[in-house]
Design a protein around this nucleic acid. Structure first.
Lengths: 200, 200
DNA sequence: ATTTTAAAATGACAAATGTCACCTCATAAT
DNA sequence: ATTATGAGGTGACATTTGTCATTTTAAAAT
């Protein structure tokens, strides 16, 4: 019997996946949790074979949990299940030694099969990620992201400069640089693109 | 036997819900589709009793579909299933005569029960929406929304004026009016607020 | 028939934005 | 010791943006 924990903050999906997996004779869902911290705790206490884990969850992300478990040398196999095909996420997940990385856009009927493979030590990654077409790498520096987030809230260069203890000229230089990098014509388009790609 | 169609663009959730509902003896999932247009077509051709429908889907939103079906006088009961508790969405849904409005954050085990109630003509709305703050109404006119959508893409007043056959001064007047209505200081903040409230 | 209202336009003005060339300073690399 | 490199800065300039008062026109409302 393969013992599984599901960590996913959207209740409807969590419940549905639980029901779906419980249909399989060789799989048993022993817990369903809604945030990263609970996931971490219940993996330690219940010692499941596999944890199906979302990335964006309250308190701790799934990647945080995976990294901490790796440090502790936990034998629990992690399968990341997320909406996001961002290369940054994927890279971090692979480094954290996760055994699977699936997309919520993928088919639900292969899920059980993936769980079985993973318990045998195999690894399974969504083909979209392994082959090309991974979303572009975030080209913005930390500082640029920080500033663009404030820009996206509608703050002016002057306000941002006061908040970050810079001159307003410097802020405008940063924004200008971002506009240039993203190859767009103004800050609003830059916001629009950056948000769409998840770079913000 | 209650015949159900599921319209949801996230495959994993769609598949899992399908499996979940097929467990019930009195419910049969006769189709699963991934966008609004397919949903519309298959409701007309397959004549299901109930359609479980997401709002944000490719091509057509679930609300668009619900409204068109109402016009045609379709007997199919619609249950909206969405992440978003926006009052604008909810109100539009009620006006379109939908029989249910559930949140993806809600429990999955009441889903089958809701479907049964709805087929009996009852209506079921997520309590978060019925009680508590069905807050602010969208204060923007059709024209203002149209312009703000373009503004949010980073288009300049001049570009928008060319696209809508207006003068750029008029466009700026509209934007100014929106900024005033939303009580913010510039177009970017206006975008930020309007998107947050789902007014866009 | 007259008044209201809404959509669209104009012109003028101050403020904010985007660009660019060039400067300073500290730290890392050679 | 010298050279990049990167974070931060300045000043100048042309555009764009935001505001406002005022006008025109057509469609509704009275």
């Amino acid at each position: 019997m393969i013992r599984v924990i599901i960590a996913e903050d959207q209740r409807m999906l969590r419940g549905a996946l639980g029901a779906l997996l419980n249909l399989e004779d060789d799989i048993e869902v022993i817990a369903e949790v809604g945030n990263g911290e609970e996931a971490f705790k219940s993996i330690l206490s219940l010692q499941p074979d596999v944890c199906l884990m979302d990335i964006e969850m309250p308190i701790k992300t799934g990647l945080d949990v995976a990294e901490e478990l790796k440090q502790l040398g936990s034998p629990c196999k992690i399968i990341i299940l997320t909406t996001f095909a961002r290369p940054g996420y994927f890279k971090r997940a692979v480094n954290a030694g996760v055994h699977g990385y699936l997309l919520k856009d993928g088919p639900s009927d292969e899920l059980a099969e993936t769980i079985r493979k993973v318990t045998q030590g195999k690894r399974e990654y969504a083909p979209e990620l392994v082959f090309g077409s991974l979303q572009e790498e975030n080209p913005l520096t930390e500082r640029e992201r920080e500033i663009m987030k404030l820009v996206a809230e509608g703050k002016t260069a002057k306000e941002i400069s006061a908040e970050l203890f810079l001159s307003s000229g410097t802020v405008r230089n940063y924004i200008s640089e971002v506009i240039n990098k993203l190859n767009v014509k103004n800050r609003i388009e830059a916001i629009s693109i950056a948000q769409e790609k998840g770079w913000l």
